[in-house]
Amino acid sequence: MKEFFLGMDDALLIVKETSNGYRSFSRLEGMQPTRLAIDPQDKNIIYCGTQQDGLFKSEDGGNQWKAIGHKESSGIQSAKVTAVAVSPSKQTNGNHIVYAGTEPSMLYYSMDRGETWEEFKNIQSLSSKKHWSFPPRPYTHYVRWITPSYFDENYLGISIEAGAFFYSKNHGADWIDRPDDSPIDIHTLLAHPKASNRLYAACGDGINKKGHSYAESEDGGQSWQYMSEGLEKHPYAYNMTVNPNNPSDCIISAAKSPRHAHSISEYSAVYRKQGSNSWVDISAGLPENHSSIHNLVADPVEAEVFYAMNNYGIYRLDQHADRWEKLEINWKEKYLKQRPSCFNIKLT
């Protein structure tokens, strides 16, 4: 059985698969989840960042939550937690290292499952910082994505919204800032358990630089190759997921412009790239006229099965299928007016 975690505007919606269909309930009501991460060692331990209320942790699979990390003199100094990740490879005393990023851009890590936190203060002296700026609110910026490695426990890749990608090979002691030709507006930054040193980047760069909607790196971000053929109609790439069994099989959500991507009344598409082929539009079955941009996850067990989530619900694309099918879940009318922010799946 599976559980889906949907970050809505006003709550974390949890949808559980049962033998009799789907059962849903909400947690963290009144808050706006931004990013969610599941401990790879204990799937009952889940971390959820929120837009205004800090970081939360559940130890029972999402039923109960407690606020963690925020203290006046130490810990996470902003209540706007914009990125959360758990390292699949780095551990201390049996605990997987947890990472959190905030607005304004600050980066933290915890070695004791969120009880105490340390800041990577040296990112504040990176030369690219003078260029960090979130276009709708140019006076601020935030950590958009934190990407640990499946293979190198001391590797971290970071994207800032907007203005930089940088990475470390020694767990933040030093950072390589804005490598040559690296994207500067990465919305989703992924690694893969079967592709050492590979990074995948869904970018907003394609709006201002033709052909820069999607990029990959085979050396942890030192160099980048842009592979955007097929995305010309929708150059603003946003969410992405990769087939867990095939690191050369990706799907991505993309829109015509930032305005289209951040609206709930414009059109966005989903594309698929397999191997060296161009991106192909696979949006059939998704809302045809307008919706929020699609959040995407791959099924952790079923081969080549993907899910897309938007303000109309959850859609499933089966292996070899040519259309998405909507899941029969209880979807409240109020969600039609919300713009979902994150989407995760785990096995129960």
Rank of each mutant, 00 (worst) to 15 (best):
M1D: 11
M1F: 06
F4A: 03
L13G: 08
I14S: 01
I14V: 15
K16V: 09
N20F: 12
G21V: 12
S26I: 11
R27T: 11
P33S: 06
P40Q: 07
C48E: 05
C48R: 00
T50E: 06
Q52I: 13
G61K: 10
G62M: 05
A67N: 15
K71Y: 10
K71H: 11
E72M: 08
S73R: 12
K80Q: 14
K80G: 04
T82A: 00
A85N: 02
Q91D: 06
H96K: 06
V98E: 03
S105N: 13
Y109P: 08
T116P: 00
E119Y: 08
N122Q: 12
S128D: 07
W132Q: 04
S133V: 14
S133L: 14
R137V: 14
Y142R: 10
V143F: 02
R144T: 10
W145A: 15
T147S: 14
S149Y: 02
S149A: 03
Y150R: 09
Y155H: 08
I158G: 03
I160M: 07
E161M: 11
A162V: 10
F166N: 02
D174F: 04
W175I: 00
I176W: 06
R178A: 10
D180P: 10
I186Y: 10
A191G: 13
P193W: 04
P193N: 05
K194T: 06
N197M: 12
A202I: 00
G204W: 05
N208L: 14
H212R: 15
A215R: 05
G221C: 07
Q222E: 14
W224V: 05
W224I: 04
W224G: 02
M227H: 13
E229G: 13
P235A: 02
Y238G: 11
N239F: 13
T241I: 02
V242M: 04
V242S: 08
P244K: 04
P247L: 04
D249T: 05
I252R: 07
A255Q: 07
K256W: 07
P258H: 10
H260T: 14
A261K: 08
S263R: 06
S263W: 01
Y267R: 11
G275V: 05
V280T: 12
D281Q: 06
D281K: 06
E288H: 09
E288I: 09
H290C: 14
S291R: 04
S291H: 01
A298Q: 08
P300C: 03
E302F: 05
V305H: 13
N310C: 15
W324F: 12
W324H: 08
E325R: 10
E325A: 10
L327N: 05
W331P: 03
E333S: 11
Y335D: 09
Q338I: 04
F343G: 05
T348V: 14
